[in-house]
Design a protein around this nucleic acid. Structure first.
Lengths: 186, 186
DNA sequence: GTCTATAATTAGATAGAC
DNA sequence: GTCTATCTAATTATAGAC
């Protein structure tokens, strides 16, 4: 792996485990195995690094959305896959979603990064709304009144479930927080 | 107000706006209007300060729980009051719940503080479970199968809603994320 | 209880050699 | 692209005077 990618990889891990203010160029350099000064060749400032890390992170999700959109899966299958994907990214409660970490340290971010996180959340909302709408039409998800309200509630529930799992370093909290929603997927 | 209380007040605000790693003794000293060195007379270390801040924060909630428990309010009224109380504490999306901020910066906390946050979450769960159970019995909350699952989902949903509000600095995100739950309260 | 002064460490960089 | 060396500012403290 090239150095730039190694930096991005370790920086994402660090941000998701310790938050934006919880790691430094020095830490990442040590992880990657280079000197601190060499970091600045790849990323001139910490904001630059963060923007690149989040772009890479969000692109993975956007790619996943696109892949799913091309499948013929029904609403319930899509939502179940979303929950499984989200659960997988937090490992054993060691990490959280990068966008949550950045929300908490919001005051330290530059405007571009805040906009990027907002867009990430908006695209999650759009995808979830579409999945709930599909589940309403095809009958695979029970008890839906308004797909957009469902999407908003679901996104919040997932984010909160991730935070709870992080506190206990235990993914079963994620499962219990989402148990009710899962029961509605046939 | 005495100096110690002023320090606790400003430190809580800072932790909830910038996260555990986002503020220093220097910042708080400036806010309070004393010199940095004077901070250490009141709180020898940053972990000591954080434990005291969280104790004060959680006690306010525990007191609120006790007050509510002595009322004759039905399940729905209790849950609506919980949502209103939570919403009020985040102001205009400028702050988040202290326990969320600490969860994200979990790696920087000492063991006592982690245990304190766990207890806080457990007590929220107990109170919410009781409120949902009440709502199930008195019929004031619709569609309850298992009160404990409901409590877990609700707590996650509230936490996620707070994070979303923080990103946009807009409490309407909180309202929209909780709209469905509110509709179930009669 | 608050202050000045200071120390050790770290963070975010920059300059310039290789 | 990576390194050593260096810089400035901030952070978490400690010592000791008032």
């Amino acid at each position: 792996m090239d150095t730039r990618s190694a930096i991005l990889e370790h920086a994402e891990r660090a941000a998701r485990q310790k938050g934006h203010n919880g790691f430094s160029f020095g830490h990442i350099a040590r992880d990657v195995g280079i000197r601190k000064a060499s970091m600045f060749h790849h990323f001139p400032t910490k904001p630059d690094l963060l923007v690149a890390v989040f772009a890479r992170y969000s692109q993975r999700f956007y790619g996943w959305f696109d892949g799913m959109d091309q499948s013929k899966a029904n609403g319930a299958t899509r939502l179940a896959a979303y929950l499984a994907e989200t659960r997988a990214t937090i490992e054993d409660g060691e990490s959280i979603c990068l966008s949550i970490a950045l929300c908490v340290d919001r005051d330290a971010l530059n405007e571009q990064l805040i906009d990027d996180v907002k867009e990430f959340q908006a695209r999650n909302m759009i995808w979830l709304t579409e999945a709930f709408a599909r589940g309403q039409v095809d009958g695979s998800v029970s008890g839906i009144s308004d797909p957009e309200s469902e999407a908003m509630a679901c996104l919040a529930q997932v984010d909160g479930a991730i935070v709870m799992s992080r506190l206990h370093k235990d993914t079963s909290y994620f499962d219990r927080a989402l148990a009710q929603l899962r029961l509605r997927l046939s």
